[in-house]
Write a protein that binds this DNA or RNA. Structure first.
Lengths: 202, 202
DNA sequence: GGCGAACTATACACTGGTGTATGGACATCA
DNA sequence: TGATGTCCATACACCAGTGTATAGTTCGCC
């Protein structure tokens, strides 16, 4: 008993939710990847001790798995939201590019998280499964859109894959590369040309 | 003195070189990224204690910096070697793709190291500088090749960027993605088509 | 107002990591 | 042979992190 509790006020702060911990984890992941999520650090950032953590989560791994699950759910949901918002093929196509490519909100944290997840997937089986689910959904969606442009199903799928690969690749190399933002537009136009030409009479 | 040295034989093992430590680091990085290189682990893998490490290197950071320097030097060298080996534009083009894309040796360790370096570059200034140097060199080389195909310098540069981005992106998404190897060929053909068409009469 | 559940703090045991100081083994050369 | 330089082992101090056990606080509810 060397310390005084000093908590006379009724309720200074709301109790922490599981989601709050996941958000903190997201911040840590965006900063330094999955190896950077440490219970101790998150706790101090939330102004709480680890006692809270081990009430909400089984252990460290539980946190990571929960985070990955939430990440997948959100990515799949934003895809289906996109589908609902309708519009013609061209417009939706653009929107799906921007989703992974240059949507404003993506520019910092979400993008960094996405890349960190992909990186983690290279050494963690569960993360790999999650990433594959999301990739598949995105590519499928893109391919089904492209079937409005070309009739050849295989070709639609190849183009979708090309688009996706280019989109992700763009973010991977152009984040640490100068002349990025300017180039990204020109690349997008090049890609658009390909789609147009391939979509033609073959 | 609770232990017997037990080294009566004249010379059981060669003295370790700085490079051997860097190789061990490469293995660790390929497995689990830069956060996975730990002096203790490398030492035990080299069947040596950390005493050796701290003779060869200043500290942990020194190892990482040295590794990055060596990595850049090798990447730049393999580029200029490529330049020397000549051949027509088409052939060299293919070769440069495969260098980052599907060269057999790349399939596991070198590829994983490359992706780990890129990941590390997102949170480390020095690594970012290294990656940018290598990226620039590769893209420049690719662009200068493409000037044999198209006369428009800007277009050559854009195409080079597109090629590079697609190549890297392909490796990033298709490593954890099924139907990868088959798709990669079709993608490569698609890209080749673009180059051909763009290189045509505009 | 007393009970139980939800949440958090504290203290402890343990592991694994860095860095440093120091000494020992071995070779080379004067 | 002995001095010096190279390379590695050992021991120490220290810190950061996980996980667990336990106790304390606050709330809603009967």
């Amino acid at each position: 008993m060397s310390r005084i509790p000093a908590r006379n006020k009724p309720l200074e702060k709301e109790p922490l939710s599981r989601d709050a911990w996941l958000d903190a984890a997201a911040a840590a992941i965006a900063e330094g990847g999955f190896d950077n999520v440490r219970v101790l650090t998150l706790a101090s950032r939330l102004a709480v001790t680890r006692g809270s953590f081990y009430w909400h989560f089984e252990d460290h791994e539980d946190l990571l798995v929960s985070f990955l699950d939430r990440w997948r759910d959100r990515r799949l949901r934003e895809l289906s939201d996109l589908r609902l918002s309708g519009g013609d093929t061209e417009a939706e196509m653009r929107r799906i590019f921007r989703l992974v490519l240059s949507e404003p909100a993506w520019n910092t944290r979400q993008l960094r998280v996405e890349l960190a997840v992909r990186d983690f997937a290279r050494r963690d089986r569960y993360a790999a499964k999650i990433v594959e689910e999301v990739d598949r959904a995105r590519i499928d969606h893109c391919a089904s859109l492209l079937e409005n442009v070309t009739t050849d199903k295989q070709q639609a799928r190849d183009l979708a894959l090309l688009l996706y690969v280019t989109t992700v690749g763009g973010r991977v190399v152009l984040t640490s590369f100068r002349e990025g933002e300017a180039a990204i537009d020109r690349i997008e136009n090049l890609i658009a040309d390909i789609v147009a030409k391939k979509g033609g009479p073959t």
